[in-house]
Every structure is written in structure tokens, then in C-alpha cells.
Amino acid sequence: MNFDWSVVGAHRDALAAAAGTTVLLTVTTMAIAVPCGILVASVRLYAWAPLRAIATAYVELFRNLPLILVVYWAFYVLPIATDLRLSPFATGLAALALNVTAYNAETFRAGIGSIRRGQLEAAMALGMSRAQAVRRIVLPQAVRRILPVLASTWVSLFKDTSLVSVIAVTELAYVAMQIRAQTFRVLEMLTAMAAIYWLLGYPQAKLVDWIQRRYAVTE
């Protein structure tokens, strides 16, 4: 049993770039999934019944499917359904965004719904319009409840980017496993992969804890 850890150092540039892609995927997905999640949540809360049903169906669908399957499905079906030839990165991004939007929609909907009806009534009793009441009274309170959940979703997303490696997106998992295949240094590369994820993910997990402590709701 001999280990050659230098192989990790030798490929540090490739690994760093791959880690960057992982982060890019995470950030871009969230940038899409937050506004889209708000949109879907609004539809579920306030729109006309048939639209509400469609939004609910969308959310329920993606809550009940494994993400890795959505990634494969996107890879094979999207080109045929949309006539677009998307890069693996774009396909992976689409799958991730579809998935996270559904979870965010649920988070936003539950967050807003958790604010007591009495708050809305008190605001309207003062003469505010429903829109004013939601904007100035309900939403600020809802944000406090939503933020910790969103932070938690972010960290899950960060881990889930590893799944798009199955369609050859050059993020950290894929690149690390490629190097493993090329150099045959299995233990070294896989441990390095785990270590890099750990180094990136651990602080994020701790940040989520801090956010949850700071925004703990006391009534």
C-alpha cells in the first residue's frame, strides 16, 4: 500500500477550476431559483384557481423526484423537447434550477402563510390596502422565517451540484474522478475530493447555524 499524495498537488489548478465551477453552479442556480420561487409561491397564494393548480402540481412533482433522475432526464429529453442543443453545464443548471425553484416556492409559501392572520387584519383595520399590508407588515416578518430555510437550501444545493457530474459537467466531483481514472491514484484523489468539499462546505454549514440562531423567531 503506497500512497502518492503529490498527485493532488500536481492537479491543483484543475481542481481549483472545478471547485470554481461548483461554486458558479450553486450561485447561478440560486440566482434563478429565488425569483422563480417567489413567482411560483405568489401564484400558489394569490392567483386564479387553474394557475394555482399548475403551480402546485409543479412543486409537488419536483418534491417527489430524485434530483439525479431529473438531471438524466433533462440531459436526454430537453434537447428533443426544446430543439436546443444545450451544453452539459446548461442542462445541469436547468435541472438544478427546476428542482430548487420548487423547494423555494414551498419555503416562501410556508413562510408567508406562517404569519398570523391577525397581523394582516390589524393592518387592514388601520385602512391599509391588502398590498400595503403584505408589503409592509407581512413580508418583513416572513423574511425572518424564510432566511434560515433558504440558507439551509443553499447548502443542500451546494452538495447537489455533485450530481451533475453524471452528465460530465466539469465540476469538482467529475474532475476529481477523471483525475482518479487517469492517474489510478484512487484513495488519494477521492480523499482529496472529499476534503475539498469539506473545506468549502463546513464553513457554509456553520454560517447556516449562525443565521438560524440570529433569526430565531421569538414571539
Partner: peptide
């Protein structure tokens, strides 16, 4: 650590490493 490291990485490491 389990919150930070993806399941895919854990599985791959367990099986190969």
C-alpha cells in the same frame, strides 16, 4: 461534516477508497 460533504462523494469514497 455530513452536512458539508455530498452523499455522492461519501458513496464513491466508501466503495472505491
Amino acid at each position: 461534516s455530513m452536512r458539508a460533504v455530498p452523499l455522492l462523494v461519501v458513496l464513491v469514497w466508501t466503495f472505491f477508497a
